[in-house]
Nucleic acid binder design. Structure first.
Lengths: 146, 146
DNA sequence: CCTAGAATGAGAATCGTTCTCGTTAACTAT
DNA sequence: ATAGTTAACGAGAACGATTCTCATTCTAGG
């Protein structure tokens, strides 16, 4: 999704929730859109053109989360990382490096994603659940740490 | 696994790592074995017969984690919850109910687990990672909430 | 352009977790 | 069993990520 349509979608969603789509919030959405994976507040600050105070950044992330524009990713102990919600970026999975703590997105091939989907459906049906979402998290060593 | 064999297995593992299986560590393992799900440090304290200081409890959990006797579960923002490791309780995945928030273990059939394993290996190899662990989290509605 | 209410920035406060250090308990060899 | 050595423990301080407070600054609507 390009930047303009992204902002249009996000603005529509925020207006629905009676909050403004301000410059600071746009900047956070841009920073997340540029990230190849979930990013913590501290990580976001360094990637942004003009730095935002952490207190504002946390509040912005909280507002965006309430409107389901971003979702928190909590796999790394002690820090919350955020990414744009799936309805904005599409479905993907995560890889977590057990050595350096980096978190990266993993795109599956359509074939693999189909395999995961059917597996999830089968598993959930057998257990009596109604699945609405799923995520495969792979932990291990990233290229740098291997 | 009963309490006695559990303690025997844990002790063997700890001794391999040159750490002692003391009374306090036994108490934490017992508390986790009695828990129907992952427990945070604060939650563990209240369930234990004689309360352990938090500083000791955190150190104990850290020691147990280093020896792979317990693993952290980080689904709740800002709090780490621990459970006994898979080699003690069996490999499982998690289902999270989006309605009531319940977290339940999911056991896969050997066939399905093999399918997940090979899928994980294939995905990780393509991305250049060395996978050591994985978890499939399925979100949706549990039996009660469906 | 004015105004009311929302958003922001700076810093203090909070909360989970980790660190420090003096004390206590657990193995080892006698 | 006892003493000596060293790991483990307890208490509290310290730390880091996040949240809160409140005075100031934007923003949308009139």
């Amino acid at each position: 999704m390009g930047a303009a349509p992204l902002h249009r979608e996000v603005e529509r969603r925020l207006v629905e929730h009676d909050v403004r789509y301000t410059r600071g919030r746009r900047a956070v959405v841009d920073a997340l859109a540029d990230s190849p994976g979930p990013r913590s507040a501290a990580e976001l600050v360094v990637t942004m053109d003009d730095p935002v105070p952490l207190s504002s950044l946390y509040r912005t992330l909280s507002v965006l989360e309430e409107s389901d524009v971003v979702v928190p990713h909590l796999a790394t102990k002690g820090i919350a990382r955020y990414e744009l919600a799936e309805w904005l970026t599409g479905h993907h999975h995560h890889f977590i490096c057990t050595s350096c703590g980096a978190v990266e997105d993993i795109e599956l091939t359509p074939t693999d994603e189909e395999a995961v989907d059917s597996l999830v459906d089968r598993i959930a049906e057998r257990a009596g659940y109604v699945p609405t979402n799923h995520e495969l998290e792979i932990a291990g060593l990233c290229k740098e740490c291997a």
